[in-house]
Design a protein around this nucleic acid. Structure first.
Lengths: 152, 152
DNA sequence: TTAAAATAAATGTTGCAACATATAATGTTT
DNA sequence: AAACATTATATGTTGCAACATTTATTTTAA
C-alpha cells in the first residue's frame, strides 16, 4: 500500500510526502518492534537503557548523564526510566562517592539474562527492513545521513 | 554527522543501522517541525487534527472516527485531542442528532485563521528534506513504500 | 574562604500513544 | 419487543518526550 492510499490525503509535493512517509513508516516499524518487546514486559526506552548498560558494562558503573548521551532522544527522561528498571530489579543504583551528585548505575544479572532471553527481538529488528536489498539499505542509510547533514 | 558518530554505538549490520537511522532521523525532523509549531502554541497531533478538519470541511461536520482514520497513528487518542482543541476554541463540537453516539466536529473561524497564520510551518515541512535532490526524494519515497509492502 | 556559577540528577507539568474498560446508543436476532 | 451484539466515544492507566524548576554538590572566581 502506498502512503497516499493509507492516509487518503494529498501532498503538496514530493518533499512533503517524504516527511509524512518517513514519519508514518517509522511509526509502523517502531510499533512492530514494540510488539516484540512487549512480550518481555519491557518498553522501548527501557530496553535501550538496558542495552547501553550491557554494551558499556566494561566501563560500569555508568552515570545517568552517560546513558542520556547515548539515547536516541534529544533529552530522554533517563532518571525516571532508570527508576522503573530499578523497581523491576533489572539494574542497581547507588550514589557515586567520588561525586555525590552522580548516580552509579549497573545492570544486574537479572537484567543481563532478560536481555539474553530477548535475542529474538534483535532478530525482529534486523528483519523489519528485509524488503530492501543490500544495495537499497545502503542507499537508504546514505540518504538519511544526508538529510541530517547540516540540517541541525 | 553520521549515525555512528552521533550514537557512539555499533550496529550488528546494515539493516539494524537502517532501523536506528530511520528512528533517529525521523525524531530529529519531527522535533524541528515541532519547534515551528510551538511558536503557535499548538502540538503536533492537534495540528494534524486541525488540518484534517480544514481539509475535509466540505464534508463537515466530521466524526471522531473519521478523524481517527486519517491520523498518522494507528490508534490516535482523538477524543482527548479534540477536547484540548475545543478548550482553545479552535473547533466546535456537538452531538449528532442522527446518531447520538457520534460527535459532530467542525473547525471554527478561529481555528481556520490559526492555520492560515501557520503558513510558514508548511514551508518548514517542505524544507526539512531539502538536502535531497528531486531524484533522491522520489527514491526515498519508493523505498519507504517498499519497506511497508506486505510488512503488515 | 566565601560567594557565585556550573553541573548532576530529581521532580513537576503537559501532551500524547497504546491499551483496557466503560457507557451510551443503535442494529440485529429471535 | 426483549435480549444480545455492535458501534462511537469517553475515561482510566502506564510509559514516555519535552520542558521548567528545584535540590544537592562541586567548581570557579572574587
Amino acid at each position: 500500500m502506498t502512503i497516499e492510499e493509507e492516509l487518503k490525503g494529498r501532498f503538496r509535493n514530493e518533499y512533503h510526502k517524504g516527511l509524512i512517509n518517513l514519519t508514518f513508516t517509522t511509526k509502523q516499524l517502531s510499533y512492530a518492534f514494540y510488539q516484540s518487546l512487549k512480550r518481555h514486559g519491557i518498553a522501548e526506552q527501557q530496553y535501550n537503557v538496558l542495552r547501553i548498560l550491557r554494551g558499556f558494562r566494561s566501563e560500569a558503573p555508568l552515570t545517568i548523564g552517560f546513558i542520556k548521551e547515548r539515547m536516541l532522544d534529544r533529552d530522554s527522561d533517563v532518571s525516571r526510566i532508570v527508576d522503573r528498571l530499578f523497581e523491576k530489579g533489572l539494574l542497581a543504583r547507588k550514589e557515586n562517592s567520588d561525586d555525590r551528585r552522580q548516580k552509579s548505575v549497573t545492570i544486574t544479572d537479572k537484567g543481563l539474562s532478560l536481555l539474553d532471553s530477548m535475542f529474538e527481538c534483535e532478530k525482529t529488528a534486523d528483519t523489519l527492513l528485509k524488503n530492501l536489498s543490500e544495495v537499497e539499505i545502503r542507499e537508504l542509510n546514505r540518504m538519511l545521513d544526508k538529510i541530517r547533514k547540516n540540517n541541525k
